[in-house]
C-alpha cells in the first residue's frame, strides 16, 4: 500500500433520535492510499453511508454529529479544521458523489451552472469557466457538452446525471473522491459504464477512491482493498483478493455466500438467518452474535480487530472460519 492520504482512527458518529442517541458509526478506523480504490461494504443501515458523510463532515440531518475519533486527510486533522477552511477542502481536495443523482442536482438550475459551482467558489478565471465545464463534461463521456450544459437535470438520463455530478465533483481535481453507492440507482449497463469511468479517472488522474457499496460484484471487480461494516462497526478488512478467497468473519462469509451462490447455482440463494440489529438497542458484545452459527458466551464481549490470515477481523473465532 502506498502512502495514506486519508487516515481515520476510532471514528464515532452519533444521531440524536426520539428514542435516545444512536451510534451510527462506532469506532471505525480506515485508510485510503494515494491512487487506491478502497471499498466500504455493508448492508443498508450498517453505517457505511454515515461514515462517508462523517468524512465530509456534512450530514443529511442536523441531528448527527461526530462524537469521537480523528480524521487525517493529506496530513491535516479535519476535525480541528475551522468550518471555512473545511468548506474550501470540500469539492477542492475531497469530493463526493451520491447514490441518487436525480435528487442531488438542483432541479431548477442548469447542469452547466452546477458543474461550474466548485470553480466559482475558488476564483477560477471567470472567462475560462465555460470552457472548463465543457471539457469536464466531455471527459466524463458526455457528447455535445455545450448544449448539455444548458439543459436542466430533468432533461437528462440517470447515467448522464451521474456523469454530470462526477464532473462537478472533479472540477477542481480533488485527490480523494468518496462515492456513496454511485451506481445503485442506475441500470445495470449504465452501472458498468460509470464504474469504468471512475476507474479510468483513477488511472489517469491518480485519484483515490473510497467506494461505499453493498454490491460485492462491483467490489470484486474494482476495489483494491475492502472494509466490511456490520451494525455501525468494522467486521473485517483485507485486500479484495484475500477477502473473497479467505473471509475470516462469519458475517463476511455469510455475505459472500448470500450474493455469490448465484454463480454456483448449486443450491438456493443463501441468506443469513435473523435480522440486522436495531442500532437504538444493539446486542451486547459482538453485534453479529445473535445471527452467528459460531456464537458462544465469549461473544458477549466485543472482540478487537486482530490479524487472522491476511485479514484484520473482529471475531473471537476467526480461526474457525475458513
Amino acid at each position: 500500500m502506498s502512502e495514506a492520504i486519508l487516515d481515520v482512527q476510532g471514528l464515532v458518529t452519533e444521531i440524536r433520535t426520539r428514542r435516545g442517541v444512536v451510534r451510527a458509526v462506532d469506532d471505525v478506523s480506515l485508510t485510503v492510499g494515494r491512487g487506491e480504490i478502497v471499498a466500504l461494504v455493508g448492508e443498508s443501515g450498517s453505517g457505511k453511508s454515515m461514515t462517508a458523510y462523517s468524512l465530509m463532515q456534512l450530514f443529511p440531518t442536523p441531528a448527527a454529529r461526530i462524537a469521537a475519533g480523528q480524521i487525517r486527510f493529506e496530513g491535516r486533522d479535519l476535525l480541528t479544521t475551522p468550518p471555512d477552511e473545511l468548506r474550501r477542502i470540500r469539492g477542492d481536495r475531497m469530493a463526493m458523489i451520491f447514490q441518487d443523482p436525480s435528487s442531488f442536482l438542483n432541479p431548477l438550475m442548469t447542469v452547466g451552472r452546477q458543474v461550474a459551482e466548485p470553480l466559482l467558489a475558488r476564483d477560477y478565471p471567470r472567462n475560462q469557466i465555460d470552457a472548463r465545464v465543457h471539457d469536464l463534461l466531455t471527459r466524463m463521456g458526455l457528447p455535445d457538452a455545450a448544449s448539455l450544459a444548458r439543459r436542466y437535470p430533468f432533461e437528462l438520463s440517470g447515467g448522464q446525471r451521474q456523469r454530470a455530478l462526477i464532473a462537478a465533483a472533479l472540477a477542481c481535481k480533488p485527490t480523494l473522491l468518496i462515492a456513496d453507492e454511485p451506481t445503485t440507482a442506475l441500470d445495470v449497463t449504465v452501472q458498468a459504464q460509470i464504474m469504468d469511468l471512475l476507474r479510468s479517472l483513477r488511472d489517469e488522474l491518480g485519484l483515490s477512491l473510497l467506494l461505499i457499496t453493498h454490491d460485492l460484484g462491483i467490489v470484486a471487480q474494482h476495489a483494491d482493498r475492502v472494509y466490511v461494516m456490520y451494525a455501525a462497526r468494522l467486521a473485517e478488512t483485507a485486500t479484495t483478493r484475500d477477502l473473497f478467497h479467505d473471509p475470516r468473519h462469519p458475517y463476511t462469509r455469510g455475505l459472500l455466500r448470500s450474493t455469490l451462490s448465484i454463480e454456483g447455482a448449486s443450491d438456493e440463494l443463501y441468506s443469513i438467518p435473523g435480522v440486522v440489529p436495531n442500532l437504538a438497542a444493539p446486542p451486547q458484545g459482538c453485534r453479529f452474535h445473535p445471527r452467528c452459527p459460531l456464537a458462544t458466551e465469549t461473544c458477549h464481549q466485543q472482540p478487537p480487530l486482530a490479524a487472522a490470515g491476511a485479514s484484520l477481523v473482529a471475531c473471537w473465532y476467526s480461526d474457525r472460519v475458513a
Binding site: R90, G91, D92, D100, L108, M109
Partner: peptide, 29 residues
C-alpha cells in the same frame, strides 16, 4: 435546506451564502 441537492452543493464546497440565496431561494421563487 434539508434537500439532497443542497447537501450535494455543500459537498462541492459551495458557500453557505450561495446555498441560501441561489440554491434554496430558487426553490422559493
Amino acid at each position: 435546506l434539508t434537500s439532497d441537492y443542497v447537501l450535494g452543493a455543500r459537498a462541492r464546497g459551495v458557500s453557505e451564502r450561495r446555498v441560501l440565496f441561489v440554491h434554496a431561494l430558487r426553490n422559493a421563487a
